[in-house]
Structures are given as C-alpha cells and as structure tokens.
C-alpha cells in the first residue's frame, strides 16, 4: 500500500487525516483508489487526465513524478506546489 500525504486543502476529504494509504501500481492507480475511499478527491487533483495546474507530485524523494510512474509497496506520495527553476 502506498502512503499518500495530503496537503491541508485536501484533508477535508479524509476527515483531517494525513497520510492515508491506497493501492496501485502506478501513481494514477493510487489516486483512483484514493478516490474510491474519499469520493471527490480525484477532481481536486486532476484536470482531465493531468494533474491540476500548479501541483507537483513526488514519489519518495523523486520530485516531478508522473501519473504513469510506477509505485512500489510502501512508497510515499506527496502532493506539492509546482516549482520552477532559474
């Protein structure tokens, strides 16, 4: 089970809980399972088939993860503000 850390703005879906656990072999599958547990959270995270503008994902320490990236058992997923570089 992946461990998903929810930002404050999304903890309203999980009853204030963070982190929460979800199943999936990819980031997308994890979020789909998360939406089954906490209906509506997917719409806050996705714009169509992409992550909402302004958000960035990290799987473990790997920043900038994508929806099709694989997720290992016990991986952490973080939902972070997007960053740009100079």
């Amino acid at each position: 089970m992946a461990v998903v850390y929810l930002p404050k703005a999304l903890q309203m879906f999980s009853g204030g809980n963070s982190p929460v656990v979800a199943r999936g072999k990819t980031v997308r599958e994890v979020f789909e399972d998360l939406d089954q547990q906490y209906p509506g959270i997917r719409d806050r995270l996705f714009a169509g088939s992409s992550i909402q503008p302004g958000l960035m994902l990290a799987v473990g320490s790997r920043m900038g993860a994508r929806l099709l990236d694989s997720v290992d058992e016990d991986d952490e997923i973080h939902i972070l503000p997007a960053i740009g570089g100079g």
Binding site: A9, R44, L80
Partner: peptide, 8 residues
C-alpha cells in the same frame, strides 16, 4: 487559492 482546492 489553497493548493489543490479548485472549489475555492
């Protein structure tokens, strides 16, 4: 806008 909260 809090990050990720489109409803806001």
């Amino acid at each position: 806008q809090p990050a990720g909260n489109a409803e806001a």
